[in-house]
């Protein structure tokens, strides 16, 4: 008994299983679509988050306490609860009331799952992006606002013409990093059956009985997307900072 268990343990954990990618010839296409799905999902989520985040950031630095608190509450709520919980509440709560018409996006993405998923991720992301924007705005030297106001520009005109153009440049690297985070975080969407990388891995595992290989491949893919990208962003950021000093 014990010896059977002991030996099986090593058979199961053998590297053959970790790196068993024999499903690839058959499921390669599904994997590629999974990668596309993940990329589309995360990029669109962050893009959709930009405008609400800008609004939240402006509210966060408003003179009116109520406005500040509203925005603060939103940001706190979305940053202090798991994204999985938010996804479930939005999918089963909000989107049981709002019916999404069924159609295919880019020819392979099911709208009834994708749209609730993207909305949940975008709502989550806007809380994080709002903080990025707020930091970007506050990083602009206060003398810039004073100079603009002293010329007679209103608060809003100064924001739009002087502060935001400088803030946007400051936040681009952080925004790109948010996309990277979203590439990883969007894996929660597998629970809704959205055919992104993780869901694809799970499906392959289920139909081939190769349990670890698909997940190892998923891990490699996530790593191959996020690690080099974050290195590139780091370099761009360093170069931008050097440019500022001149």
């Amino acid at each position: 008994m014990f010896w059977d268990w002991w030996q099986n343990l090593f058979v199961d954990m053998s590297s053959i299983n970790f790196f068993n990618f024999s499903f690839l010839p058959r499921y390669g296409y599904a994997v590629i679509q999974g990668v596309e799905y993940t990329l589309i999902l995360s990029v669109i989520s962050v893009l959709l988050a930009v405008l609400p985040a800008l609004m939240l950031a402006m509210m966060r630095i408003s003179r009116h306490k109520t406005v500040r608190c509203l925005s603060g509450a939103y940001i706190a709520a979305f940053r202090s609860t798991p994204i999985l919980v938010q996804l479930m509440i939005i999918y089963y709560g909000v989107f049981s009331v709002i019916r999404v018409p069924k159609f295919l996006i880019f020819g392979f993405i099911d709208s009834t799952r994708f749209i609730p998923g993207v909305v949940a991720l975008a709502l989550n992301s806007s809380a994080y992006v709002a903080e990025i924007f707020r930091a970007g705005i506050l990083a602009v030297d206060s003398g810039q606002m004073e100079a603009a106001r002293s010329l007679g520009l209103s608060q809003a005109q100064s924001m739009r013409l002087v502060i935001l153009p400088q803030a946007v440049k400051n936040v681009l690297p952080a925004l790109a990093n948010e996309v990277i985070t979203m590439v990883k975080e969007s894996s929660v969407c597998m629970v809704l059956g959205m055919a992104e990388i993780m869901f694809t891995a799970q499906t392959i595992g289920g139909s081939t009985y190769i349990s670890i290989g698909p997940y190892m491949l998923a891990a490699f893919i996530y790593f191959a997307i996020t690690y080099p990208t974050s290195k590139v962003i780091e370099r761009v950021e360093r170069r931008m900072r050097r440019g500022d000093k001149q």
Partner: peptide, 20 residues
């Protein structure tokens, strides 16, 4: 105040030109 500020120019120690 904005319309009155137009009539009062201000020059700062650190210039505060708009870098963009």
């Amino acid at each position: 105040v904005d319309s009155h500020r137009q009539k009062m120019g201000m020059v700062f120690q650190h210039f505060n030109l708009f870098p963009h």
